[in-house]
Nucleic acid binder design. Sequence first.
DNA 1: GTTGTTAAATTAACAACGTTAAGTTAAAGT
DNA 2: ACTTTAACTTAACGTTGTTAATTTAACAAC
Lengths: 210, 210
Amino acid sequence: MPPKVKTEVERQQLRTLIIDAARELFVAHGVEAVTMREIAKRIGYSATSIYLHFADKESLMRAICDTDFLALATALKNILEIPDPVDRMHALAEGYARFALAYPNHYRLMFMTPHQPRHPEDSSLQQNNPEQDAYFQLKTVVNEVFVLGKFKPEFTDSELIAQTIWAGVHGVCSLEIVMAQDSWVSWRDISTRLQTMQTVMVSGFMREVT
Amino acid sequence: MPPKVKTEVERQQLRTLIIDAARELFVAHGVEAVTMREIAKRIGYSATSIYLHFADKESLMRAICDTDFLALATALKNILEIPDPVDRMHALAEGYARFALAYPNHYRLMFMTPHQPRHPEDSSLQQNNPEQDAYFQLKTVVNEVFVLGKFKPEFTDSELIAQTIWAGVHGVCSLEIVMAQDSWVSWRDISTRLQTMQTVMVSGFMREVT
DNA sequence: GTTGTTAAATTAACAACGTTAAGTTAAAGT
DNA sequence: ACTTTAACTTAACGTTGTTAATTTAACAAC
């Protein structure tokens, strides 16, 4: 029973219905549970219908990624209200880590899984829009701190600083996600590790407070 | 034609033959090329023969992991000869990163992919053996530096320091492996990022050189 | 109001995958 | 010589992503 002539907004609704169903399976049972047939069953469609909206499973995953990137930027949005740039930088790193550890399956898809290189034009997100681009948020606040002259003089590239801070927090979070259960390493508490990383980054990059 | 009665050493040889074939496929064509049938074709056996040596694909992957952990520890072994502990710590981090970026597929399997929690008894590696346990290598050298009193006094847990250094280097390497192609971020040179991470770690953890 | 046309959805089917069951072969033990 | 058994293969099952073919229903034109 195909009631046809769907308006564009209806098509978009079905599209996000598919994405949401896939995300639910994802967060509930991990990536291996996301099969096209299972997604379709969730929304009461047949598996092949998904292909009317997504070229293949990979591009469906990329679409999920996009909504998650937006979710991350949105989760960090209020942090931008913090007036002091240094405080803001700290809060941003902490908020990022909170997101990573609260949604490990999404984080894995976003930052720990290789994808086909994504062209910025087919992404639904606007690069350099602080409401949608979490990397831009970080880059911006780090640059503000940079302009205030708070970093040691040997660091002259604020984007390099941002990328290093990102890598530090990402390293702690991704190791936690993958290896928390591993008994080979007697892991220290995750919040301790996160705080240590932040402390090291701060005292490594910034001038001494005088 | 099954010429039977294989001695134990012959069985082991076939086992490592399977592992090596799987690793080759892995490094050459990525994870998606590792199918049981493809591995079998490589070594001139039928796919089901693999199941005489490995319970399933997951445990074959774990076996590959084990040989790669050994390979990593072996690659870092000569670094332990460096007399000065601080130099050794630097070289260890750099050697680790070199391994990660030289064998990204293996690195992904080892440190970026969740596995069933592995019991130390079914692993073929000896924990705390510096020839086989790269984490022990790092832990040891960091502790040596710690005992020398080179770290800032607020850091009192040398294993926490080791885990943070690991996370920092891992963060740079894993982001590189997954996102190097991504045009969203205008990445700085990978060796620059690595060196920056090392610099930050050093000046963050260690006392000022006086 | 019948006739095309087309969008939306479905069912059927394919090839490939991991894995299991059943069967085959050749050497070793008695 | 006969049985047992390890080593291996072929057949087959269920599931996966995906494509082809088919059906259904709404609209447009005459």
